[in-house]
Amino acid sequence: MDTQKIIDDARSMLRKVAEPLGIRSEAEDNNKDNSQETKELSLNDTEKGQDKSGNVVILYGLSTCPWCKKARNFFMEKDVTLDYIEYDKADEDTRKSIEEECSSHMEKLAFPVAIYGDDVVVGYDPKKYADLIKR
């Protein structure tokens, strides 16, 4: 029997004992912390990732807009990968591409704009956001 298997078996045994008592193992806590950290990093770096369905929620916002922050918080709490870009802080090329994307949806740079696959939600609307990521 290899060492990793012994550790895994021991963890599983401990979990069985601890769970009914409402105790969580330190390892699980560490894993949870790490996953939160990873999510934060991905948001801060505005790196494109993929969720289970292969899509990314792209969220365009403004650094001055409270609704954009609320929209960002909404998606951060869900199990989706978020690519958050602030139009007013973006470089010239990114700004132009956001302008083109918004005008293709007949919108005039009113933020926040959430894009998931082919679907677009303009404005802060948690109900529409929930429907969007359910599809």
Binding site: C65, P66, W67, H105, M106, E107, K108, A110, V121, V122, G123, Y124, D125
Partner: peptide, 25 residues
């Protein structure tokens, strides 16, 4: 759009949503 102003009769601003321009038109 930003919610700084509401109609005078509005008491609960949280009940108001942002309607996208496209949807309004």
């Amino acid at each position: 759009w930003c919610g700084l102003y509401v109609h005078k009769d509005v008491k609960d601003p949280d009940s108001l949503i942002q309607i996208p321009l496209k949807e309004f038109l």
